[in-house]
Design a protein around this nucleic acid. Structure first.
Lengths: 110, 110
DNA sequence: GCTTCATACCTAACAGTGCTAGGTATGAAG
DNA sequence: CTTCATACCTAGCACTGTTAGGTATGAAGC
């Protein structure tokens, strides 16, 4: 399903932090994890994800380290930091609030 | 609660269309309706709403008409059109999809 | 009359962000 | 040697909320 860029922007931080909460991951894998989490509906582009990762690192929410995979390929892993955990909690609150307002707006007579 | 501009952007169209689904309304009232729907947590600025309304009208999702209120004040009312009803349905689908992916990402071990 | 406040609509400049469309490089498979 | 999936990165563009204003009406208080 095609999702508006605004919705992608709004969910990007929350999704990345939510994924990294389960353990470190890297760019290419995160895109696949997002696809899996959405049942194949969400297709993130690399041009959107990498700037997001760099931004989160600049903000001190995640940190990165290089590691060579078993395959021999070099990967840049990202790990959730304490500030990132707090930011994730804030994102969840905001999301829940907006979702509740939307649900109320959508309810009622058609 | 402070909500990120990305989340505001993502929910603006869905909220406005959802509100107009219940009948015509105007700028100033919509801001109050959003505040009510969110239990006072969401505070939309006028500088954000009016461009949204004009955009939705340009896109043919809503239409506007002038009317003089009982108070004597002139108001510009907005009414949901058929295309807007379809756009609202699409917004709901997208939102539900992303919300489900987020919920899955947030679930599991902490 | 005059001031103040809530109502009511609008706009310009700015910063931030995804998208498009590229580029670079490695390893495996044929 | 070619092709494909993997893996990371960037520049220019268009879009959008925020900030910070402007304009105007009607009611209330003095």
């Amino acid at each position: 399903m095609k999702v508006t860029k605004e919705l992608v922007a709004a969910s990007a931080t929350a999704l990345v932090l939510g994924i990294l909460r389960h353990g470190p991951s890297y760019g290419y894998a995160i895109i696949n994890q997002v696809r899996d989490l959405s049942g194949g509906e969400l297709e993130w582009s690399e041009g959107m994800l990498y700037p997001v990762l760099h931004r989160l690192e600049d903000q001190g929410l995640i940190e990165s380290y290089s590691e060579r995979a078993e395959s021999g390929r070099a990967r840049r892993y990202y790990r959730l930091l304490a500030d990132g955990r707090r930011a994730l909690a804030a994102e969840q609150q905001q999301w829940t609030l907006v979702h509740a307002a939307l649900t109320r707006a959508w309810a009622g007579k058609s």
